[in-house]
Amino acid sequence: MKDFLLIFRQPSYDYSTTSAADMQALTKKWQDWVGGIAAQGKLASNGTRLSLDGKVLKAGGVVTDGPFVEIRERLGSFVIVKAENLEEATTLAHGCPALDADGSVEIRPIIG
């Protein structure tokens, strides 16, 4: 088994207008999806949510506010899964709630 990083990208939008009930439903979707991966024994790390704040350091010492000044999406969180290969890791990414919000899941092998 190899470890794969699933990176969740979603459009950048303001959650402050989302109702408590909608946030609770969204949280449950995420818990159910990650729980399904864990039930298969394929969850290596449930990662963590990332703050919306950040900076980007570029070559030459250029620092910008961000962290996503060039794109209209945000990196929301990540998990690490165990899979035999990239295809299986991609299959595990199906059903991710980020996809319901026009987001994407980037699947990356972890070298090490």
Rank of each mutant, 00 (worst) to 15 (best):
Q24W: 01
D32E: 10
K58M: 08
C96L: 01
V34F: 03
V34Q: 01
V56T: 14
E70C: 11
D32F: 00
G41A: 08
P97A: 09
L5G: 08
W30H: 02
T17P: 01
A21R: 07
M23N: 02
D100I: 00
F8V: 00
V62G: 11
I111S: 13
V69F: 13
L5C: 09
Q10I: 12
W30S: 00
R72M: 05
L92F: 05
G54F: 05
D14H: 05
I71Y: 10
V81F: 13
A89E: 14
G66A: 06
I107A: 15
G95Q: 04
V79N: 15
V63Q: 07
A59H: 07
F4G: 07
W33G: 00
G41Q: 02
F8M: 06
T18S: 15
V62E: 14
Q24R: 08
L92R: 15
R49E: 02
F4V: 10
I80Y: 02
F8L: 05
A59S: 10
G47K: 07
K29N: 00
K82R: 15
E73T: 06
G36W: 04
R74N: 04
Q10P: 01
V56M: 14
G66W: 06
I111A: 02
M23V: 00
I80C: 12
R74G: 10
G112W: 08
V62M: 12
A59G: 14
V63H: 10
A83G: 15
F68T: 12
S19R: 06
R72P: 03
Y15W: 14
S77C: 09
Q10F: 03
P97D: 00
T27R: 00
L50W: 02
V56C: 14
A93G: 07
R108F: 08
A39G: 02
Q31D: 05
G66I: 13
V62D: 07
A93C: 11
R9E: 04
Q40D: 05
G41S: 05
K2W: 04
T91E: 15
G60Y: 07
G41T: 06
T27C: 00
S45E: 11
E87C: 04
L6N: 09
Q40K: 15
I80A: 05
G61P: 13
Y13M: 14
S19Q: 03
M23D: 00
Q24M: 09
L75D: 04
K58N: 14
F4R: 06
I107G: 14
G61N: 10
A89L: 11
Q40H: 10
V34S: 03
V62A: 11
A25P: 01
A59D: 06
V105Y: 00
A98H: 02
E106M: 03
P11C: 09
A101Q: 07
